[in-house]
């Protein structure tokens, strides 16, 4: 398992390097001129950084969420956080909000995500604690509500902002610049750090609250902490570049095939796997049909799903 983890780290860095130098036109790092240096440092590098941060956030939060909800179908989007973020972003885009300059839409999305996370938390709270089923159902309910509101706004909006909002919501990494990266690093690494710190408690929570309690963990406190970390990571990810499917749901399962279910390894492996997959998918999205770009979210699902199904048949694993 340790060797597999080491391999994932290696693959992660290999993908990073490859996506930096390949693209619509490959760049030779040893022969840079003004244009290629500009492209490499100010266009590609921040884009890769954002892709990696988003992928890491989605992978790690997926793993944590499947643990705290004890549900293999949980993903960061099931809690409605992404729908809330999308709704807020769409309102921002269609309403032409510019109060925070180029940060307006990400700030809107982040606020929408955090607010939704808060509502889900309140709805899932009963008798002094968060309950997995309540969280899940509250998330699904809110998610339907927000998606419907989003569709409502889009169908009554006459503005051409609809298409823009759609493009934004379905994942756009092309506008990534260095300015957003520090915020991303703060929230994503913060979330991953909390999850890693509480990974042992997460292992115990999966086995049931009584069991966790007997091992000396306070189940409700742990769940709240982990829930906050998931909320932060998902909010950061959506506000960095919209919604990217597949990673949050399936990367943790793929990682489990190689690493096993110990969250001390699973969370970082899911983070690295998610980062690598989104980075690779974005590489394909921007290089497949130059000078056009495809949405990266489509590519993650197209390359990820068959691989997941293959593993599902090949590996002898029955559940989370």
């Amino acid at each position: 398992m340790k060797i597999n983890f080491f391999l994932i780290v290696l693959i992660f860095f290999a993908v990073l390097a490859i996506s930096l130098f390949l693209g619509p036109t490959p760049i030779n790092p040893l022969a840079l001129d003004g244009t290629t240096r500009e492209i490499l440092i100010n266009i590609r590098a921040p884009r890769i950084a954002v892709a990696v941060l988003m992928g890491m956030a989605l992978g790690a939060s997926g793993a944590v969420l499947q643990g705290i909800l004890r549900n293999p179908l949980a993903d960061p989007y099931i809690l409605g956080i992404s729908s809330g973020a999308s709704l807020a972003a769409a309102i921002g885009i269609i309403g032409g909000v510019t109060i925070f300059g180029t940060f307006s839409i990400p700030v809107f999305a982040f606020a929408g995500a955090v607010l939704t996370g808060g509502i889900v938390g309140v709805m899932g709270w009963k008798r002094g604690g968060l309950w997995p089923e309540r969280l899940l159902l509250a998330g699904v309910g809110l998610s339907f509500l927000f998606s419907a509101l989003l569709m409502l706004i889009m169908s009554v909006s006459r503005d051409e902002g609809i298409r823009r909002a759609m493009l934004w919501i379905f994942g756009d990494l092309s506008m990534s610049d260095w300015e957003r990266v520090p915020y991303g690093v703060l929230f994503v690494f913060g979330g991953v750090a909390i999850s890693l710190w509480r990974a042992k408690a997460l292992n115990a929570l999966i086995l049931g609250d009584e069991f966790a309690h007997s091992l000396g963990f306070a189940p409700q406190t742990e769940r709240v902490l982990l829930f906050i970390s998931v909320g932060l990571m998902t909010a950061a990810s959506v506000s960095l570049g919209g919604m990217i499917g597949f990673i949050g749901l399936l990367i943790p399962h793929i990682a489990r095939f190689f690493i096993g279910s110990d969250n001390r390894l699973l969370v970082p492996a899911s983070a690295l796997g998610g980062g690598a997959l989104l980075c690779a998918a974005d590489l394909i999205a921007r290089s497949a049909l130059p000078p056009m770009e495809l949405p990266a979210g489509i590519i993650t699902a197209i390359i990820g799903s068959p691989y997941f199904l293959y593993l599902l048949r090949r590996k002898n694993v029955l559940s989370v």
Binding site: G23, T25, I43, S174, R286, P290, P291
Partner: peptide, 10 residues
């Protein structure tokens, strides 16, 4: 098309 910023620079 959704156009590549890299390609605009190039």
């Amino acid at each position: 098309p959704k156009y590549s910023i890299e390609e605009v620079i190039r």
